[in-house]
């Protein structure tokens, strides 16, 4: 069953306030008592903000870039009922990375976050899709960082001082790593054995190699950070497919209502995650 998470039954104050609430849509927050038990009943409540995408590529299990455009992960989650409500034309895939860049990214993310007995790896979770999607956001374009000149270097503890946006970090970083790997290993990163890939990533992490205009570790840290974000953010951002990251961590996602569990000290919280779009696991 795929449904939207229910609004909490411990509802905010009624509208009988002597002071009007801060704005009209407040009323949408108020729900009538649903007389639920403490079981994680999920009533199908349509959320006004639900973004409904027409499903294509539904059921694609392993992510192959060629067959899955960035929005199909979201599309996949749209429930049948939701799709019936307001089908929209899918947005054309706007991909930031080239196929070659993506091949590197997919291989590198998978080494940082490998599939193993703990759970899915970066590829299965859609992490490369996530990173690609993030490139076309204000953050990806560097619009949420102070980018003004002059750019001077200083001690690491004074923070990031490069003139590059995330888009530029990736573009420069991938180009430099690919060239460096080709020169030393006469093969593309994605075609090397895992142990060699790990050694290369480790060299980047510890700045063993120098690139012309980007410290290798700056690229590595960006990649590591974004891989984690792709594995654990809400699937609405195209990573964490089927909430595989959350299941592994034991995080209940968008449930966000623990009224009945806060002081059951003998019993850990028992329920699996839900996503913003209402996927359950």
């Amino acid at each position: 069953m795929t449904t939207a998470p229910r609004p909490p039954r411990h509802s905010p104050p009624s509208k009988a306030a002597s002071v009007p609430p801060e704005d009209q849509s407040y009323a949408a927050q108020s729900v009538s008592s649903q007389n639920e038990t403490s079981a994680p009943l999920l009533t199908a409540v349509s959320t006004p903000r639900r973004k409904v995408m027409q499903g294509i590529g539904a059921g694609a299990a392993a992510l192959s870039w060629g067959t899955l455009h960035p929005h199909s992960a979201r599309a996949e989650q749209a429930s049948a009922t939701a799709q019936n409500q307001a089908p929209q034309t899918p947005r054309p895939p706007t991909r930031f990375f080239t196929a070659a860049e993506l091949a590197f990214l997919t291989a590198a993310c998978e080494r940082l976050f490998p599939e193993d007995d703990m759970g899915p790896g970066a590829t299965a979770l859609g992490v490369p899709n996530f990173i690609d999607g993030q490139m076309n956001t204000p953050w990806g374009r560097g619009e949420k960082w102070f980018m003004a000149a002059p750019h001077r270097s200083g001690p690491a503890n004074l923070g990031y001082q490069l003139p590059y946006s995330p888009q530029q970090i990736y573009r420069k970083g991938i180009t430099a790593v690919q060239a460096w790997v080709m020169q030393n290993h006469h093969a593309a990163f994605e075609n090397l054995p895992a142990a060699t890939q790990d050694a290369i990533l480790s060299a980047l992490e510890h700045n063993v190699t120098q690139f012309d205009d980007l410290p290798a570790s700056a690229f590595f840290e960006q990649l590591r950070s974004d891989t984690i974000e792709g594995a654990f953010s809400d699937p609405i951002h195209l990573g964490n497919r089927h909430m595989g990251g959350w299941k592994m961590m034991g995080f209940p996602g968008a449930r966000a209502d623990y009224m009945d569990w806060v002081d059951r000290y003998e019993t850990p919280y028992p329920y699996g995650p839900v996503s913003i779009n209402g996927e359950t696991a």
Partner: peptide, 26 residues
């Protein structure tokens, strides 16, 4: 009502990672 709406605000990436509600240093 707008910035705290459920469930869209229950989003770690937007809220705590991209700093949706904070000063933009740009």
């Amino acid at each position: 009502a707008k910035d705290g709406a459920y469930p869209s605000s229950i989003d770690e990436l937007e809220g705590a990672t991209r700093y949706k509600l904070f000063q933009n240093p740009a």
